[in-house]
Amino acid sequence: MFKAFRCIVMRDLTLAMRRRTDVLTTLFFFIIVVSLFPLGAGTEKMILQKIAPGVAWVAALLASMLALERLFASDFADGTLEQLLLTPQPLFVLVLGKVLAHWLLTGMPLVLIAPLVGLQYYLPDDAVITMMLTLLIGTPVLSLIGAIGAALTLGLRGGGILLSLLILPLYIPVMVYGAGAVSASAMGTTDLQAYFSILSGFLILALVLSPIATAAALRISVE
């Protein structure tokens, strides 16, 4: 079972390394969206500091959502997905492997690029660290929830826009507490434990429930 899990993760990572632009597109989408806001809302330091947590999180939501379309699409197109459904290993383990690989390729870069947002928006160092931590806990949740939507909209026309309609409302709690923690940290609050506890709770809940729902959705979509 673990062998199959590792095999899936390594396979997806290798595939992505052969087409590096896909990974970079998501990352640059995030950077561009974040850079657009100061141009639109004015470059005043006070305003930027205030909107930074929200902007960073909304950009992260959009970036991870746009990348979701590719999660199962290529496997569906070349028939790999049907083979995955036929394997003796439980499907949710394979799904978890695919989501992990997907997060390493799209969520992890966002965490690493977060200090750049901090520079652009004049955030204090503490807030930048908080942002990295919340993104580190929060983006896996986004990938996990999004996987359900990606599985449901598999192979549909206009799948991307439909996916956003289905998934974005479900992302709200993660964003509320993720951005809330960064805001509180930028205000100088040091006790952020409650935020991290809630976000970790979301992560655990999503880790348990989402792969099962995704597996069910894949069976519905492919049958």
């Binding site: 709690p173 509320v176 507490y177 509180a184 409650a194």
Partner: peptide
């Protein structure tokens, strides 16, 4: 979860 997160954005 959504309703609750909107109801109290500050967990403290």
């Amino acid at each position: 979860i959504i309703f609750w997160s909107i109801n109290c954005p500050d967990p403290n």
